[in-house]
């Protein structure tokens, strides 16, 4: 990567950082995917992670996922909190035995020298109550700052995984702020150019953050959202029922999991919006989470009955 022009350097531009990670993980055999085209709270929700983590089939993917956390909106006034930000997500299944080394290699690829910076693996068990998922791993620290989350999935959609996948999640803005030496996220150099040609993170996102904060906290129509939640929940269940395997031998597979899972993601995001609008009480909150988890579990179980979920895994040879 040394022959890159300055403006493409991961330490000079936000997009350069993304390109460097793409380059690195593509070289390690990952399918470099594009973001999922729906609103999600984290890269883990992308079906390339949630669903592909299930079943016996090996899988390797890397992608950027725009992530939305409505209640983290700060009207563009907080230097490091955003209601929309980017996660860089890598999933390797089963996890290779040198996953830590691969991860450290990626840090070097974006310009972090581990003999200059103090890189540490600090205990942090990961759990997503809405996805019925948990795993063990660490927060990865660079000079005291959490730059990634490193997780060995143990359970996803309430299902014990086999094999275990390793998941790496980089907080791109935070990492970029670190390598660019910037204190305010909106000052990040997005395209690596200077002067008139420079496009900053603020140029791209500041107005959007302000507008979405208003939307998330003040304007979003909660009656409509309530209805959306109910609709998404119903549709998810209906699609799972419609695609369910029949009794005949040639109908052994589930025929409609990805579309059903989309509805589960939708319900989850609508719930986050309702939560940000402050219309969900403490007890209701638990029951919403449980409802989304129930959908996620049903999708996960259905996925195991599909080809990608490994329903026919190992049968080809026989």
């Amino acid at each position: 990567m040394t022959d890159l022009p300055d403006h493409m350097s991961p330490t000079r531009s936000f997009q350069g950082l993304i390109l460097a990670l793409h380059h690195y993980w593509a070289d390690k055999g990952c399918a470099v995917l594009q973001p999922y085209d729906m609103e999600v709270g984290a890269g883990t929700f992308h079906p390339a992670t949630t669903l592909r983590a299930l079943g016996p089939k090996p899988w390797k993917a890397a992608y950027v996922q725009p992530s939305r956390r409505p209640s983290d909106g700060r009207y563009g006034e907080n230097p490091n909190r955003l209601q929309h930000y980017y996660q860089y997500q890598v999933i390797l299944k089963p996890n290779p035995s040198n996953l830590q080394e691969l991860y450290l290699g990626s840090l070097e690829a974006i310009g972090l020298d581990p003999l200059l910076h103090d890189v540490r693996f600090v205990e942090d068990d990961w759990e997503s109550p809405t996805l019925g998922a948990w795993g063990l791993g660490w927060e990865c620290w660079c000079d005291g700052m959490e730059v990634s989350q490193f997780t060995y999935f143990q359970q996803v959609c309430g299902i014990e995984v086999s094999p275990v996948a390793g998941e790496l999640t980089y907080g791109l803005e935070r990492l970029a702020m670190y390598v660019q030496g910037v204190d305010n996220v909106y000052d990040l150099n997005f395209n690596g150019r200077e002067g008139d040609e420079k496009i900053s993170y603020g140029d791209v996102f500041l107005q959007a953050e302000q507008e979405y904060s208003r939307h998330n906290f003040e304007f979003a129509n909660t009656d409509m959202l309530h209805q959306h939640f109910i609709d998404a929940e119903k549709e998810c269940q209906a699609l799972l029922a419609a695609g369910a395997p029949g009794n005949h031998a040639n109908q052994a597979l589930h025929k409609c999991v990805f579309p059903a899972y989309d509805q589960c993601i939708k319900a989850s995001h609508v719930f986050n919006l309702l939560d940000a609008r402050g219309v969900i009480s403490v007890t209701e909150r638990q029951s919403y989470i449980l409802r989304v988890r129930t959908l996620a579990k049903a999708c996960g179980e259905a996925f195991l009955l599909t080809d990608a979920g490994g329903a026919n895994f190992g049968k080809d040879a026989a």
């Binding site: 016996p56 089963p94 086999s162 094999p163 190992g314």
Partner: peptide
């Protein structure tokens, strides 16, 4: 926790390592 190729289902293998399913070795990491 479980990890790696040994956590593949029984009867399958990956990279020359036999899957042990839920019986694969467990350690803290």
């Amino acid at each position: 926790m479980r990890w790696g190729a040994a956590s593949m289902p029984k009867g399958t293998s990956f990279g020359g390592i036999e899957g042990q399913g839920s019986e694969s070795l467990r350690w803290v990491r």
